[in-house]
Design a protein around this nucleic acid. Structure first.
Length: 280
DNA sequence: GTTTAACCCTGCACGC
DNA sequence: TGCGTGCAGGGTTAAA
């Protein structure tokens, strides 16, 4: 799950669970459930800080969702590859790989489901958020209004590395993963292996605009749901942006702009998709 | 500083 | 049919 899916989920949560009071919090009995709350030593350290408290607001930082509680604590959530929230109630069976269940005083429950357990949840005091290493090191969020193209260009030039890995580096810019880095680079007309310090100011501006427009579009289409990685929203509904993808997963299919076949290359173990005609 | 590979984990596609 | 193998990916970490 990358920035657009996380943002769609945050908006769903904002509409549907803010204002609700958590009656009970359960970390499921499996070993994997302990992996989900790996920063806590015991289930109780986690659950006792949730039960009895109201969810007061939602925030997003990069690929993290923050749920603030009226106690002053914050529930921090990272979805990893396969993590997601699903709304349910006591009549609906828990899906396989449900790791955590929050039950509300009225209005069903909220399940955190994560088969591959790369996702994670933890509770921390809001004034300790600044001490959480991952959040501390997180770079600027591309949808934040302080993300300007001048600042972006300066940081780009400070690195001498290939564009794609840099765009996926959360310490450089937060929120892009494998899918959207490829889509952004296509929209910018730039290759995955262009060196970050080789861009003209026109290319920097193109890349900057491509980041914002691609992410906004993907949010508008409620995220990308691929066959193998079945992302769905809070209510189980898939996104629509997979129909808008220009390069990701389209090996051999004609480029939507120039009709030449899309190519997949391996870049240090990860796949990168591009149109060799449109990107340079 | 940059680059690569390995690791965590499960489900699925594939070939034999 | 059924098994083993490889791959997918977000992020961290160690090593080159």
């Amino acid at each position: 799950m990358e920035l657009p899916e996380v943002e769609v989920m945050r908006r769903d949560l904002d509409r549907d669970v803010v204002g609700r009071k958590i009656a009970t919090a359960e970390v499921r009995p499996s070993k994997n459930a302990m992996r989900t709350i790996r920063r806590h030593d015991k289930r109780k350290d986690f659950t006792s800080r949730l039960a009895g408290h109201k969810i007061s607001k939602t925030d997003r930082r990069g690929k993290y969702v923050l749920l603030s509680l009226d106690s002053g604590d914050v529930l921090v959530v990272h979805f990893g590859m396969s993590g997601q929230f699903l709304r349910g109630n006591k009549r609906t069976a828990l899906p396989a790989h449900t790791q955590v269940v929050l039950t509300f005083n009225q209005g069903g429950d909220l399940r955190f489901v994560d088969p591959r357990t790369f996702g994670e949840m933890f509770v921390t005091a809001s004034d300790e958020l600044g001490k959480v290493k991952e959040l501390q090191h997180l770079a600027i969020d591309p949808l934040d209004h302080v993300f300007t193209w001048q600042a972006f260009g300066n940081t780009l030039a400070e690195h001498a590395t290939k564009l794609k890995p840099l765009l996926m580096d959360q310490k450089f810019i937060s929120g892009l993963g494998n899918i959207y880095s490829d889509e952004v680079l296509f929209h910018a007309g730039l290759r995955y292996d262009r060196m970050s310090d080789s861009l003209s100011s026109q290319e920097v501006r193109r890349l900057y605009r491509a980041i914002q427009e691609t992410l906004q579009d993907a949010i508008r289409f409620r995220g990308t749901t691929l066959d193998d990685e079945a992302y769905v929203d809070l209510f189980g509904k898939p996104g629509e942006y997979q129909n808008e993808l220009k390069v990701y997963g389209r090996t051999g299919q004609p480029c939507r702009r120039c009709r030449s076949p899309i190519v997949m290359v391996k870049l240090s173990g990860r796949s990168a998709y591009l149109c060799p005609q449109c990107q340079s």
